[in-house]
Simulated assay, not measured.
Amino acid sequence: MSRSFDMTDQAPAARGAQPAPLLSVEHLSIDLPGRDGPVRVVDDVSFTVAAGRTTGLIGESGSGKTMTATAIIGLLPPGAAVTGRMLWHGDDLVTMTEQDRRRLRGRGIGMIFQDPQAALDPTQTIGRQVGEILRRGGMPRKEVHRTVIDLLDRVGVPDPQTRHAQYPHQYSGGLRQRAMVATALAGSPELILADEPTTALDVTVQARILALLRRVRDEEGMAMLLVSHDLRVMAHVADEVVVMYAGRICEIGAGREVLNRPAHPYTRALVVSVPAVRSKTAIAEPLPGSPAGPAERPSGCPFHPRCAKARDRCASEVPRMRQVAAGRQVACHFPEET
């Protein structure tokens, strides 16, 4: 049964010409220390993020999407080894000094974490945390106060004059996430990394946060890299979609095209596993098997043990990314059969 993802409420940027990349990730690979030696958790990943647009990284748990975003912001765990390039205004984030990285965080690249309750300091007021980067930049105290109030108001925190002095435990889950958005915006970044920003929220609050992210992107003209396992989130926000499985990219393309006409069997399996956005009668078809972890990645195409169309070649030969249409790439030996 086909699924049709309604993306008509997206920003006009989703339908315009692709602007120049703000961030270019080129052949990124990440190895983490393992019991029996290094484990490759991200393998030869390449994609771009353009100003004013949202690129979505999607895949099941262990696909490498969060690790990719973590590498961009420079917060990989100790012992991680990174190869490839991540070009930001021509500067390579991979070789950038930690001092330059710290200057970039917040002002060049902002971060919205998955769990605001864990990310926010319970001993500091919301206003103090939102204004931290402003104080570090030397902004006068009175101006910091005014700016924090304005930021909280812009992201929809009610009565910001009072609530800026409250602590995270006095905020609901949705308001904590709004406070995280305000914190990410405080440094006027060009790129926001949003890691599963709506996972812990109920459906109604999710919709409000997604609408907020779209509005902020459009008003500020910034880029967004959205990490999520939820195709419904991507359908509402992402201009471009990068589908990942077992640390590798299996499909890249415009969000509408990828979600409505998947070219990779894994993308199709994701789509049919989610009830349709438009159709109330669609029946979910769960993915068979379990996701392949980086430490036990199968030979050949990592998805082949779960793929109904797999052949002998799929088990022995790694498929390379190839263009199947304008702006559309897929890593599959037989994409015409999907």
Rank of each mutant, 00 (worst) to 15 (best):
G187W: 02
V41E: 04
G137Q: 15
R35S: 14
P168S: 05
D195Y: 06
G79W: 09
R154M: 15
Y266M: 04
S63N: 07
A315C: 01
G37L: 05
L212F: 04
V277D: 14
Q206P: 08
A184T: 05
R163H: 10
L287R: 11
S63R: 05
M234C: 12
E296L: 13
S61R: 12
V49R: 02
D100S: 13
L193C: 10
S290L: 15
Q323I: 02
P291R: 11
E317H: 10
R217V: 02
R40F: 05
S228D: 09
A315R: 07
T54C: 07
V181W: 05
A282T: 15
R306N: 07
P19C: 03
L191I: 06
V94C: 10
P288W: 07
I149T: 15
A276W: 09
V330Q: 07
V241A: 06
R141D: 11
I249K: 06
L76E: 04
D159H: 13
I109W: 05
P189M: 03
D31L: 07
S228G: 11
F5G: 03
A326P: 09
H145P: 13
G327P: 03
H264E: 00
Q99W: 12
T66W: 00
T66G: 01
Q18R: 12
H304E: 12
R40S: 10
V203S: 13
Q329S: 02
H264D: 05
A326N: 12
A17D: 13
